[in-house]
């Protein structure tokens, strides 16, 4: 298990097995044109979003590159990256499960949802399974409060959950993940 966000990332970065350094060719593909928008230095966040959209996370290399383009220090960029919940400094697993912890979900059993997911996948929030197949994220509100409690798996919403229903959904997701892994091998 490894932490998806988390401060300890810079030192452990290089030896991380799922992390692949981007080639220079690849690197040009991420859009730095959004910088210098209107002559204002205001596009740091869109730049980081562009990096994350392209690679799935904001790598050390991306921070270096953005610093080079913008003249903003790496430390300041890192400060912005870690301030906002959206940015990740490590890649996610192949499947992403988001557990809603909005108020409506909380009063309708988000704890039960978390316990069940944790029990099935053996990971806690901001962790990825050892085989890299699932990441678990807690989100503040998915905005479908009338379906509470809710999770999404790769963006697909599953609502009005109870432990039995959720366990079935998770087991099917695990089965699909295994099948995909076999096919890819």
């Amino acid at each position: 298990m490894y932490s998806v966000s988390g401060i300890a990332m810079l030192s452990t970065f290089k030896d991380f097995n799922l992390m692949q350094e981007h080639s220079n060719e690849e690197f040009k593909s991420f859009n730095v044109d959004v910088w210098q928008h209107d002559g204002h230095a205001g596009a740091l966040i869109p730049l980081l979003q562009s990096a994350q959209n392209t690679y799935g996370y904001v790598s050390e290399q991306a921070i270096n590159h953005i610093s080079h383009v913008t003249g903003i220090s790496q430390a300041e960029i890192y400060g912005v990256v870690t301030f906002y919940a959206q940015f990740r400094t490590k890649p996610l697993g192949r499947n992403v499960i988001k557990v809603c912890n909005g108020t409506a979900c909380h009063v309708n059993g988000a704890k039960m949802v978390y316990d069940t997911v944790q029990d099935e996948l053996n990971i806690t929030y901001d962790e990825t399974t050892d085989d890299g197949s699932f990441s678990l994220i807690s989100v503040a509100c998915l905005g479908c409060c009338s379906l509470a409690p809710v999770i999404t798996i790769n963006g697909e919403v599953f609502g009005r959950l109870d432990a039995t229903k959720l366990r079935k959904i998770l087991r099917e997701a695990k089965k699909r993940a295994r099948e995909t892994a076999v096919q890819n091998n």
């Binding site: 966040i45 869109p46 980081l48 979003q49 301030f83 906002y84 919940a85 959206q86 940015f87 503040a140």
Partner: peptide, 8 residues
């Protein structure tokens, strides 16, 4: 449009 990045 400016997209927020997740901070209450």
């Amino acid at each position: 449009i400016k997209e927020g990045a997740g901070a209450f």
